[in-house]
């Protein structure tokens, strides 16, 4: 158990190092002189040289990389090249936005996918099951931004039930915070649910073929009771894996959705920083996102043990 955890930690750290290097190389490889972009028109060669020295972009690649990594270990992600604000200051208020969106979206996806997946499995040869599977197929094919635009148009512009875009922090007005998050969370959640339904369905189908399920049925339990009593826990093992794997795509989806719904989250900040070539910010956010994904995946591994008593027993022996 201990050795496995240690191995898992090693993979986690190695992945972080590899990711940080990849991120640095990619951002460094862009052509052009960022000092000229920052200073704008009219900068003299002396001003440019001074700016490069200030940014440190005139130093060798490895020196820049190591300094960046070392500073990050101390919690210092550097300062934006344009606004001169610490990257952590820029990211802090946005973590809540992206966090609300991603967690709300995932939660909604699970809430939709579990019952629908059960229907699709139990009624797989009848019209409710077929309809669910078909709808899920269509849902997966819809691009998130397109779904977002349609929702904005219908509920924001035509009916005016909900604000079409924008954000209000929870601390300022909880009611308006929630109303602004409804459409983006629905967009993200429904699209993710479409993906998830298929996994839930196949996980439940596996359960249906198990002996314990047949036993439960034979002692008189209804299909639904047998499935909810035995099925969910057994199916959740593979679902948690899928959720962990899906996280990266949920985050990428959130970036698009933040743009469509004009949410000031990490994704918007990332896209803005890319557009202005504020590479310090780009690196910082990417590292945070990578860290989140790796961390959640490590947590998924650990959660296997919690979900599956057989694994715990095996560890103990």
């Amino acid at each position: 158990m201990f050795r496995q955890l240690l191995g898992r930690l090693g993979i986690f750290l190695l992945s972080l190092v590899a990711a940080s290097f990849a991120i640095f190389v990619i951002t460094q490889a862009l052509p052009g002189d960022v000092a000229a972009v920052i200073l704008g028109h009219g900068a003299t060669p002396e001003q440019l040289a001074a700016k490069r020295a200030e940014l440190g972009t005139d130093r060798p690649f490895l020196v820049q990389y190591l300094e960046w990594v070392t500073a990050m270990l101390g919690g210092d992600f550097g300062r934006s090249w344009f606004s001169h604000l610490p990257v952590t200051t820029l990211m802090a208020p946005r973590l809540g936005v992206t966090g609300s969106l991603v967690s709300g979206g995932l939660l909604l996806a699970v809430l939709i996918a579990l019952p629908l997946g059960a229907v699709a499995a139990l009624r797989r040869r009848q019209w409710p099951g077929l309809l669910t599977s078909a709808t899920a197929q269509v849902g997966m094919a819809i691009p998130a931004f397109w779904a977002g635009i349609i929702l904005v148009f219908v509920f924001g512009v035509l009916l005016r039930w909900l604000p079409p875009n924008g954000y209000v922090p929870l601390g300022r007005d909880p009611g308006r915070w929630a109303s602004h998050l409804v459409l983006p969370v629905v967009t993200l959640g429904v699209i993710q649910a479409a993906v998830l339904v298929r996994y839930v369905r196949s996980a439940f189908l596996e359960v249906l073929a198990e002996d314990y399920y047949r036993t439960a049925r034979s002692i008189g339990w209804t299909k639904w009771r047998a499935l909810s009593r035995h099925g969910i826990r057994n199916a959740s093992l593979s679902l948690v894996t899928v959720l962990g794997l899906q996280l990266a795509s949920v985050i990428v989806g959130a970036i698009v959705i933040e743009r469509v719904f004009v949410l000031p989250g990490l994704g918007s900040l990332l896209l803005d920083a890319v557009a202005t070539n504020d590479l310090v910010v780009v690196r910082g956010i990417t590292m945070v996102l990578v860290f989140a994904v790796l961390l959640i995946n490590a947590a998924v591994d650990i959660s296997y043990v919690l979900i599956d008593p057989r694994l715990r027993a095996r560890e103990a022996s």
Binding site: A22, V252, L270
Partner: peptide
């Protein structure tokens, strides 16, 4: 599982690279 996750990680990194270029 870790291998699969490294793949998703590289997808994320690639997405950022794509965004940059």
């Amino acid at each position: 599982g870790a291998r699969a996750r490294l793949r998703t990680l590289s997808v994320l990194v690639a997405a950022v690279a794509l965004a940059l270029t």
